[in-house]
Design a protein around this nucleic acid. Structure first.
Lengths: 334, 334
DNA sequence: TTGAAAGCGTTACCAG
DNA sequence: CTGGTAACGCTTTCAA
């Protein structure tokens, strides 16, 4: 920048003004500066810029996901990216794999880089760190799951209602032995979905068969095994509710291995790519990752802009997508 | 940091040494500094740090994808993230949607942020910008597609060989009317895959029916329509080769709409999540996004570390995954 | 071993 | 409208 200034025969301050498109520079001078910058191959340094700037904005935001490769995360990421891009903000992303240690590390490095804000899918065991970041001036929005710290904004989904309604449908279709397969109990959504399952049974006046409830089923393989075990029971379930997308895949794999996909009903939580191409299609309780991401980014930018209001907790609804697997009739008759 | 220094009653330089874990500080003093930092809630500022540092590393890398939400991109992203994390490097990601203007913008903002390096899936129409970045000292690795600038490192896949082999399989299974549906011709991989198709026909001594070659098929809907048109031909194809993952989805959707998935063969390029759950499973020519991402990051870090050697062009191979749809027999008989 | 001071590239302030 | 200068938070050099 100094070089540009001397080459253009102007002060360094003027170069800064031109570079930042500030008004009040004689077009003549501005022209000279632009030319000099061009000639010297000058590249503006945003890091130095935000260091000196009054607002100290880095125009960067941190996104902490469970796993960037998961379709849900990927869609969320893209939605955040798009709404951030509208403000000229870039997204720094990292995956925790549900490991609180990694989450803590990411929060630390992100704040060390002075991101303008943090969007986090919290593992649920680093609340104090998240709160520390917030206390230190980095706005935080929790996504998909809340935190124990009530002061942070959250965007979640009404998991309970979604599963409850699904159970209601299965009951109405005649199912009386409905099983549930849920993810790790440390994950808030897994617990909520499980609670929704219990509530759904209660609402329909059904009995809860403990043998038909499998928790801590994490990943495709675990789901396959759990499904095999459930179907091998003396009195097996006639319908399955899966609490997570990879679990749904595992369940369905086993169902197909056993050629039972046409007689055992299945409803999964969270949509899957191409679930509608299967036969029968997999009925799911779908969330809208794009809406979630957009909402989270919007809330975050409000805070970045200085909104001091009380914490907002957005709860989006789920949508049931009937595609066949959830509509298979049960023996309870209608 | 100044506050920490005064509170600990030491010089600011000592604080810097302690924070960076540099040797040669009396344990006694180090202890005092750590305590003061703790008490004051001191957070190291990496941006200021890298501004002053001799190597000027930001420990950040830019990743430019076609679309962060695409499964291939997501997997690539995760692989890059993981190998970057090993070096304490964070990943800044952006999507171009095949728009050279957006790509140029991303290259600019990334370099303005002084990323240590750039991993790019180039749209193929901003080669000069990419080269400018490289010229300005930011190492660049192109992924999935090469650039016209020979000096930049690339990681690609042998698209031609993959498609050629697929055509060979279809021919061997008795197919004599094989159609091809390819993405936009501006995309290098689309052209390579098309070339592989033509080569495959030639190798098997088949004739190329121009009516069976559809290019510039971009996205799911376009693929659905193109498939409908192909199957409505007076002499329709008995096998389809799709050149891109979303195209494969569209093709399959139409096939199922028409209930032809069991008699029209299909081989897609690039794997799809859960493609093996379908009936018949979709046979694909698979790439390994994780290997690609890892390799790209490795090449990049070599450059970041100062490797001045000639450009390296890694070409990974594809793997054919037989899942049924590519194994449906054709009328040519075996 | 320690600290004072210079300076990374930039913007903010203030005087001209 | 313009330019000199201080300062952002840090690392590096150099002298003590």
């Amino acid at each position: 920048m100094r070089d540009v200034a001397t080459m253009a025969g102007v002060g360094i301050a003027t170069v800064s003004r031109v570079v930042n498109g500030k008004p009040g520079v004689t077009p003549d001078l501005a022209e000279k500066v632009t030319r000099a910058a061009e000639l010297l191959g000058y590249r503006h340094d945003m890091t130095a810029s935000s260091l000196r700037r009054a607002d100290r904005r880095t125009h960067t935001l941190g996104l902490i996901l469970e796993d960037a490769a998961n379709p849900f995360s990927a869609a969320l990421h893209r939605a955040v990216e798009d709404t951030a891009a509208e403000r000229g903000v870039l997204v720094l992303a990292g995956s925790t794999d549900e490991d609180p240690v990694r989450e803590r590390g990411l929060v630390r490095t992100f704040t060390a880089r002075r991101v303008d804000g943090l969007i986090v899918v919290p593992t649920g065991r680093t609340d104090t760190d998240l709160d520390a970041a917030r206390g230190a001036g980095t706005p935080v929005v929790c996504v998909d799951r809340p935190t124990s710290v009530r002061e942070v904004d959250t965007v979640t989904v009404d998991n309970r209602a979604g599963v409850r309604a699904a159970v209601g449908r299965l009951h109405a279709a005649g199912h009386r032995r409905i099983a549930f397969l849920g993810d790790l109990p440390t994950i808030w959504t897994a617990e909520e979905r499980h609670a929704g399952f219990v509530e759904g049974l209660a609402e329909t006046g059904s009995v809860l068969h403990p043998a038909l409830v499998r928790r801590a089923v994490h990943g495709v393989e675990a789901a396959q095994e759990a499904t095999r075990e459930l179907l091998a029971l003396p009195r097996p379930p006639t319908a399955l509710v899966s609490g997570q997308n990879l679990v749904t895949v595992g369940v369905r794999k086993t169902l197909q291995d056993l050629r039972r996909q046409h007689d055992v009903a299945l409803i999964g939580f969270d949509d899957l790519p191409f679930a509608d191409l299967l036969d029968p299609g997999i009925s799911v309780i779908a969330q809208d990752p794009v809406a979630i991401g957009r909402e989270a980014a919007t809330l975050l930018f409000d805070r970045v802009d200085g909104d001091p209001g009380p914490a907002r907790h957005r709860v989006l609804t789920t949508r049931y997508l009937a595609r066949g697997s959830g509509e298979l009739p049960g023996p309870g008759g209608v």
